[in-house]
Write a protein that binds this DNA or RNA. Structure first.
Length: 738
DNA sequence: TAACAACGCTTTTTT
DNA sequence: AGCGTTGTTA
């Protein structure tokens, strides 16, 4: 190979180049945010192929999400100029599923096993509790499931689990849960990997086959892998011992899912003779943003430590704004966004990040009002919607009559008068004869001389659909099924009754599902995809503003970033701190670090004083401590609740009646909307005159709580607050307490 | 079996 | 406050 043909290496800096061309041995690449990690990974893959170190099928590349996998696949394919479909590139789960399908019999499964989701898992646990009469008052099925799931992130052995739990019920439930999964020919997410490891350990020849096949292993987001995944990697690595893991300890944000940074910290132990490399030049963010992020993450104690630097300009300060209510926050952000849009900023370069998925709501309302296009990434996942799961359950059952979980889901949807009693009888037949519910219901009908008309109609339909399956395309099949089963009719009826406005979109979702079916060659392919892909289908090429949680923003970047909900309790999450103390706080801080480092140019942070959860409206939130962690010189704070004359309010109060020019397009649209009502600004100065505040008066303040007035001048009072020091506050924000 | 009332829990993050 | 789950009744 001449140097000429490696021209692609010229676009890399030196550390990056080293990370690409050192192919033999074990490497840990500590890649800071925005340091070109993905680039290094794709180039490394490309390099391996170009240098003929390995064939496409001899590389194992593990990513964190399916999205990342398909993106990498695309990038490498375009560098290479040919498709790389035969590369083993995917998530731990999808790769494990692929392996497991080939050797399912070795762990007592059939190769057409079904991958179940949380709902199905929970259903099984519930059934077990019911059958064994386990009290679920104090410890709910959800709790048991959580323990099982957590355990499956940590260990491969079932026995260990039973031995180490004092709670007898958990051991019992765990055992029954596992045998129930086997009986139903199912696996949960954790099992996918665990079964693989079991196969590897018990069957040397299988393990060797894969060990020999995978000459090179690549792992992305290494900081977020759990103990079981680490074991999986170690087994496959042992033969060729070429592994390259890329990660950033500062961006580990999945400990609640079993991610264990100690994997990263003990890399040299797990993969002996390894080399650690660092990528510290940041190509993404302005210097100010980097400095802010650095000063924040510096507060964490448990970290490798690295210093990111950039050749970019200082850039703009981070703007921090506080509001009373969530709708004020949404309004401010949407106005800022409209300003950006008038400056020809692309929608796709704008993102709003949330700690909690549910908090997108007030923003959505606002965007719908003013007609801004947005999309929610992550959020309510498409495949988790009720109607989608129903439709898929029909498909699952047509595809495989012994899919009992699918059977139970749709046997009475839409209502066929087949309730608990009938179902119970079928269930008993199924269990005593060791047959599927579907077969059991055939027997049930024969025994009852076909008296259950609805049930026999249901079964007849399936016989019919099963025939269709061979004759028509899978998307036509779904259409037929949904009509024959009167499912569509049922949705239409529901939406007519207006019980739930959601029902209108349900039919749209079904249509979208039928459309997306066309992307798959056959039904089996689609069902495999659905089992593994928990992400939304994003077929919208339209320009949209991006709304998502910080977790799902991992790996992404945007010019303009809005970070909403930076309040104590929300972010850092109260729950996280309560459950894990200092550790929890550090993870929250890493999350904040991830959030900040998504931005290329500009960051707006917002917080809201009033508690977001109105059912507990007695508490008021204070700004996140993470705001205090940012260097004062690099930020600008505007808190409308304390400075009523700030720009934001001026602009709003005046803009409606003064000048058209200040009106953003969205605001115009909204004002022309008859149903729009102006937001009530709590700025009525006259009210304050009614306050007869005197020195020594007990008062309540929404932000600082209870206190005693020590001094009054004009509109401002000095108050000695119980929970805080002496503060100067506006009279109008004080409530008199008698 | 289905409809309705009562109750209690929610708001962390996802393959 | 609003949802889903459980219990009660027709």
């Amino acid at each position: 190979m001449t140097n000429n043909s490696k021209i692609y290496l010229d676009s890399l800096n030196n550390p990056q180049k080293k990370a690409v061309i050192n192919t033999e041995g074990s490497y840990l690449i500590l890649a800071g945010a925005g340091s070109g990690k993905t680039r290094v990974l794709t180039y490394r893959l490309f390099h391996l192929l170009l240098e003929k170190k390995a064939l496409i099928g001899q590389i194992l590349a593990v990513t964190f999400t399916n999205k990342a996998a398909s993106e990498m696949k695309m990038r490498v394919a375009s560098l290479l100029g040919r498709p790389i479909d035969s590369m083993w590139l995917g998530t731990f789960h999808s790769l494990s599923a692929k392996i497991l399908r080939n050797h399912a019999n070795l762990v007592g499964l059939k190769s057409n096993f079904i991958i179940i989701d949380k709902d199905d898992q929970l259903k099984i646990v519930k059934q077990i509790c019911e059958r064994d009469q386990i009290n679920i008052k104090e410890k709910t099925p959800k709790y048991y499931l959580k323990i099982i799931d957590n355990y499956k992130n940590k260990s491969v052995s079932n026995n260990f689990f039973i031995k180490n739990n004092k709670d007898k019920d958990i051991g019992l439930i765990f055992n029954k849960y596992q045998s129930e999964l086997l009986r139903l020919n199912c696996v949960d997410f954790g099992d996918l990997i665990i079964h693989c490891i079991r196969i590897f350990k018990k069957n040397k020849e299988v393990l060797e086959k894969y060990q020999n096949q995978f000459k090179y292993i690549l792992v992305d987001e290494y900081q977020d892998i759990n103990t079981v995944q680490q074991k999986w990697l170690e087994l496959l690595y042992l033969k060729n011992k070429n592994i390259c893991c890329v990660g950033d300890d500062d961006q580990s944000i999945y400990s609640w899912r079993g991610a264990d940074i100690s994997n990263l910290l003990s890399f040299e132990k797990n993969f002996p003779n390894s080399t650690i490399m660092r990528l510290e030049q940041n190509y993404r963010s302005s210097q100010n943003i980097l400095d802010c992020a650095a000063s924040l993450i510096d507060k964490n104690k448990n970290r490798y430590g690295k210093k990111l630097w950039s050749e970019k300009d200082k850039g703009e300060k981070i703007i921090i704004s506080g509001f009373w209510e969530t709708k004020d926050e949404a309004m401010f952000v949407s106005d800022q966004i409209e300003k950006l849009l008038t400056k020809n900023t692309k929608h796709s370069e704008i993102a709003i990040l949330f700690r909690v998925a549910a908090h997108t709501r007030s923003f959505e309302e606002r965007f719908i009002n003013i007609g801004l296009p947005y999309k929610i990434i992550g959020g309510l996942r498409f495949y988790e919607r009720r109607e989608i799961k129903d439709a898929i359950a029909y498909l699952r059952l047509v595809n495989n009559y012994s899919d009992d979980l699918a059977f139970e889901r749709i046997i009475n949807v839409p209502k066929r008068g087949i309730g608990k009693k009938t179902l119970n009888k079928i269930n008993i037949i199924s269990r005593t004869n060791n047959i599927s519910m579907y077969e059991a219901s055939e027997i049930f009908i024969n025994e009852s001389n076909g008296s259950n008309l609805e049930l026999s109609l249901f079964l007849n339909n399936f016989t019919k659909w099963n025939k269709y399956k061979k004759e028509v395309s899978h998307y036509d099949l779904l259409q037929v099924i949904l009509e024959d089963s009167k499912y569509i009719q049922y949705l239409q009826q529901e939406s007519k009754l207006m019980k739930d406005p959601e029902n209108l979109t349900r039919i749209d979702n079904i249509n979208e599902l039928i459309e997306s079916l066309k992307d798959f060659e056959n039904l089996e392919g689609f069902l495999e995809h659905v089992g593994l892909v928990m992400e939304n289908i994003s077929n919208t090429s339209k320009e949209n503003i991006n709304l998502m949680t910080i977790h799902s923003a991992k790996g992404l970047e945007f010019d303009n970033l809005f970070l909403a909900g930076w309040e104590e309790g929300v972010f850092p999450s109260k729950k996280s701190i309560e459950e894990l103390g200092q550790k929890g706080l550090e993870e929250e801080r890493r999350l904040a670090y991830v959030a900040l480092t998504r931005a290329k140019k500009k960051i707006n942070i917002t917080y809201v004083n009033q508690n977001r959860y109105s059912y507990a409206s007695h508490d008021y939130n204070i700004p996140s401590r993470f705001i205090d962690d940012l260097p004062k010189k690099l930020i600008e704070i505007t808190d409308s609740s304390f400075i009523p004359n700030n720009d934001f309010i001026d602009e709003f109060v005046n803009s409606d009646d003064i000048s058209d020019e200040v009106l953003t397009p969205g605001r115009k649209r909204m004002l022309s909307n008859s149903s729009f009502k102006e937001i009530e600004w709590n700025l009525n100065q006259d009210e304050n005159n009614e306050y007869n505040l005197t020195k020594g008066q007990k008062v309540f303040h929404k932000k600082y709580g209870y206190g005693i007035v020590t001094f009054i001048e004009g509109e401002v009072a000095e108050v000695d607050f119980k929970k805080s020091s002496q503060k100067q506050v506006f009279l109008k924000y004080l409530e008199i307490i008698n």
